[in-house]
Simulated scan of single mutants.
Amino acid sequence: MTVPRHTLLNAAYDHVRAAILDGSLTPGSRVTVRPLTEQLGLSPTPIKAALAALERQGFLVAVPHRGYFVPEGSTDDLLELYELREALDGIAARRTAGAPGHDRIADQLERLLARQRKAIEANNLQSYGELDLAFHRLIWEGSGSRRLIPIAENLIAQVRMGNRLSAQAPGRLPVAVDEHEAILAAIRDGDPRAAERHTRDHVRAAGQALRRYLGVAGGAEQP
């Protein structure tokens, strides 16, 4: 039986996207067709289509005559991302707090928050990063917006990179969890304005922490 072409494309797409998101393909890595054909047992056609789709969504960058690469993200790119997230996440939190099932979502957020605190106590930055993304993704999904969710999902690769760096800013993680607590409380109370305000403040603070961290790192490299 012939497997539909779109199924093969999806298999290649999901494989490469997952490798980018879990860090198996690190920023700057080159992604080529031949190794993927061997790994996945697919012909080049669906793999090329999958890489092109990932490039359109920002997961890869195409370099003429060299192929596809996992984007490294400049400082300006990362800081711009936080500006976009401030608006996007703020809207999502406002909509989630006003949704009929906001108390159920708050219960799920509370469980994630407890796990975040444990990750910090264990100094497990990787686990915290996954839980932080899960916290925000749950709010995106809770917004019920068919347009917002795919936009947010397409930013995940860049979000992971920014979160990984801002989490290394001294003292940032305990403060971030307290900010999550404020967002959670506003959603539980069904207060859209407070949920948006706390979320915007949180994302802005994360961006400022990233700016400080990159400033310190950059300064250390100067002669």
Rank of each mutant, 00 (worst) to 15 (best):
M1D: 09
M1G: 11
V3A: 09
R5M: 09
R5G: 04
L9E: 14
G23F: 09
S24G: 12
S24H: 10
T26H: 15
L36S: 00
L36T: 00
E38C: 03
E38M: 07
E38T: 07
Q39N: 04
L40G: 00
L40C: 02
S43I: 04
K48T: 11
L51T: 01
L51Q: 00
A52G: 03
A52N: 12
A52I: 04
A53D: 13
R56W: 06
Q57G: 13
Q57D: 15
F59D: 14
V61H: 14
V63W: 05
R66A: 13
Y68V: 02
P71I: 05
S74P: 15
T75D: 13
D76Y: 06
L81G: 06
Y82M: 06
L88D: 07
D89I: 03
I91T: 12
R94K: 09
G98L: 07
P100F: 08
P100Y: 08
A106E: 08
Q108P: 05
Q108T: 11
E110W: 05
R111C: 08
R111P: 02
L112S: 02
A114G: 12
Q116C: 11
R117A: 02
N123G: 09
N124L: 08
N124F: 03
L125M: 04
R137K: 05
I139L: 02
E141H: 03
R146G: 13
L148H: 04
I156Y: 14
Q158M: 14
R160F: 07
L165G: 06
S166I: 00
Q168P: 01
A169W: 00
R172D: 01
L173R: 10
P174M: 04
D178T: 05
E179P: 11
H180M: 03
E181S: 10
E181Y: 08
A182D: 12
A186K: 09
I187Y: 06
R188T: 04
R188I: 03
G190L: 06
P192F: 03
R193T: 14
A194S: 12
E196A: 09
E196Y: 07
T199G: 10
R200M: 07
V203I: 07
R204C: 05
R204M: 10
Q208W: 07
L210C: 01
R211A: 08
Y213A: 01
L214I: 02
L214D: 01
V216D: 05
A217E: 13
G219M: 11
A220K: 11
Q222G: 04
